[in-house]
Simulated scan of single mutants.
Amino acid sequence: MAIHTEEFSMCFATTLAVTGPLLAAAGAALLAYDVFRNPSRAVIASFFANQMKREDEIYQSIIDRYRSLPADLDQNTVKSWIESVNKQMERVRQRNQQRQQSRDLNELLFSRRLGVVGFVLVATGSMMQSFAAML
């Protein structure tokens, strides 16, 4: 019976010695992936800022066109057109800001999850290596 226990102990130590570094490597890969995603997040934020800038330029050009309409047009009609454009633009801005906030929150939660899982894998793999060395 003692031989059987010793064989089991050696097999268990070998299993820990092999799977420990694999788990640690997987955790390190997740952490590295999380770090290398930062540049892509910056590109997405830049894209969003440029999109908002283009929308503001379009909005401003529409307002300028309405303001440069001939004076013989009814000014109340022109003002109502401008108010309509202002309301529509405000809805577009709010929608885009809500979308961006939602993306930012989802990105933060995903990044946190990656960090926690990566850390847990590295810690678990390291503990497994330590236990394998003790056996």
Rank of each mutant, 00 (worst) to 15 (best):
Gln60Thr: 15
Tyr66Leu: 15
Glu57Ala: 12
Thr14Gln: 13
Val85Thr: 04
Gln75Cys: 00
Ser9Gln: 08
Gln94Cys: 04
Arg91Lys: 14
Leu16Glu: 00
Gly118Pro: 01
Glu57Pro: 01
Leu105Gly: 02
Asn96Thr: 08
Ala26Ser: 08
Gly118Cys: 03
Asn96Ala: 13
Ala123Lys: 02
Gln101Tyr: 02
Ala17Cys: 03
Ala123His: 01
Phe8Asp: 13
Ala42Phe: 08
Val43Ile: 15
Asn50Gln: 14
Lys53Glu: 15
Ala45Cys: 02
Leu114Met: 05
Val122Ile: 11
Arg112Met: 13
Thr5Cys: 11
Leu23Cys: 07
His4Met: 06
Arg95Met: 13
Leu22Gly: 00
Asn96Gly: 08
Leu109Phe: 10
Asn96Arg: 13
Leu22Ser: 06
Ile58Pro: 01
Leu109Met: 09
His4Lys: 10
Leu30Arg: 01
Phe119Asp: 03
Asp56Ser: 15
Ala45Gln: 07
Ser40Arg: 15
Tyr33Cys: 10
Lys79Asn: 15
Val18Leu: 08
Phe110Lys: 02
Gln94Asp: 09
Leu135Ile: 09
Tyr33Gly: 05
Leu108Ser: 12
Ala2Tyr: 11
Gly125Met: 02
Asp72His: 11
Pro21Glu: 04
Gln101Ala: 12
Thr15Ser: 14
Arg113Trp: 09
Asp72Val: 11
Gln94Ile: 15
Val43Arg: 14
Val18His: 04
Lys87Gln: 13
Phe36Pro: 01
Thr5Asn: 09
Met10Ala: 14
Gly27Gln: 02
Asn106Leu: 12
Met52His: 05
Arg37Val: 06
Gly20Phe: 00
Ala45Asp: 03
Gly27Lys: 01
Gly118Leu: 00
Asp64Cys: 07
Arg54Gly: 03
Glu57Thr: 11
Ala25Met: 06
Trp81Val: 13
Val18Glu: 09
Ser68Lys: 10
Phe110Tyr: 07
Phe47His: 08
Ile58Trp: 05
Val122Glu: 01
Thr5Val: 14
Gln94Trp: 06
Phe131Met: 07
Gln88Glu: 06
Ala17Phe: 07
Gln94Leu: 14
Val85Pro: 00
Leu105Ile: 07
Glu90Cys: 06
Arg37Met: 14
Ser102Arg: 13
Cys11Ile: 15
Asn76Val: 09
Gly118Phe: 03
Phe48Ala: 14
Gly118Trp: 02
Thr124His: 00
Thr124Glu: 00
Ala13Asn: 03
Tyr33Gln: 08
